[in-house]
Structure formats: C-alpha cells, structure tokens
Amino acid sequence: MDMVFFALLCIGIVTELFTKGGDATLASLIGGAGAAVQNTVTMAGGMLFWMGMLGVLEKTPLMNALSGALRKPIAFLFPDAGKASGAIALNLSCNMLGLGNAATPYGLEAMRLMEAENPHKGVATDSMCVLLAVNASCLELFPATLLGLRQSFGSAHAAAVVLPVVLSSACSTAVTVLLCRLCIHR
C-alpha cells in the first residue's frame, strides 16, 4: 500500500506540474482531501442506517439460525477445526451479511483456537488455509455497506446490484471450495 500511494501521488504531481503548473497541482491536491470529507459525510447516513438495522438483525434468532445452518458445511470444509468451528460459523455469517468489521474478531479468535491445537506451530493447518481462502472469496448475501454507499450518492436503484453481487460471489466461493478440497486431499 505504501508503494502504491507513493507511486500514484508522485506520478500525479510530477505530471500535473508539467501539464498545468504549480497552482493547479496544489488545487487538485487539496481538492482531493476536501472530496474525502464530503464523501465521508455523504456515505455516513447510509452506513449508520444499515449498520443499525444489522444490529437489530443480530439480536434476533436469525443470526443463530444462519450459523446453525452453516454447521454441516463447516464440518465438511474444516475437518480439523475442532473447538474453532463456532467462531468460524460466526465469522462466515458476518461476512455473508457484509459485516466485514464484525467478522474480523471472530476470524482472529478462530485462528487463535486453531493455532493452539496446531502440532506444527508456525505452519498453517488445512483449516486455516481454507478459512482464509473462503474469506477471500466471501459469499455475500446482503452487501449492507455497499447499499448504504449507493443510496448516499443518490442512486435510484440501490438494490439492483444485490443479485449480481450474490451470484458472482457464489461463483467464486464455489470455485474456492472445490479447489480447497483438491488441495487438502493432495
């Protein structure tokens, strides 16, 4: 990320110095930071609302039902998960609801539990690899942050993207699960 930022900024500044001069360059730089404030304020409303609704959802039995429904697939995907399977279920449920930030603590807890039972410390177990791979493909059922973002920017069809998001993330999760099985059995 450091390299990316450094490269983008330097290339941009040097190019604009040549094409438009110093004043315009400074104006673009400050303008970018100003746009950041504006965009944050714009997206705050949508995010507050959807995170609030997800807070309500979490308190209902639906959240437990989702992790309960995940129990079988988890036993299949993570044969050596042991004590960590509860944390894994919550991690995956949160990810499916687009709650990336809520998923992280459960994910870290799952990693800690799996490392505690790991006979080869410092070497990733099968289940750890699968957890990371499934996280990277991230089956998404309800992209809350994205919906909030789209609404904040005045979209007339904010929810129109939900179905394609679900389908494409389902595709990549399916491919990932398949590849995980192949890697484990090798």
Binding site: I13, L29, G32, A36
Partner: peptide
C-alpha cells in the same frame, strides 16, 4: 469504520484526483 475511512479517503482521493487532473 467512518473514522478509519476518512484518512484513507483523503490519501486515495488526493492521489486519484491529482492523477486525473494531470491527465495521467
């Protein structure tokens, strides 16, 4: 989330903005 987002937005929108305005 928003608090973490703001500095990152400032960094990236500055970089993307100057890249766009410069024609690069």
């Amino acid at each position: 989330l928003l608090k973490k987002l703001l500095p990152c937005l400032a960094a990236m929108l500055t970089a993307i903005g100057v890249l766009r305005d410069s024609g690069a």
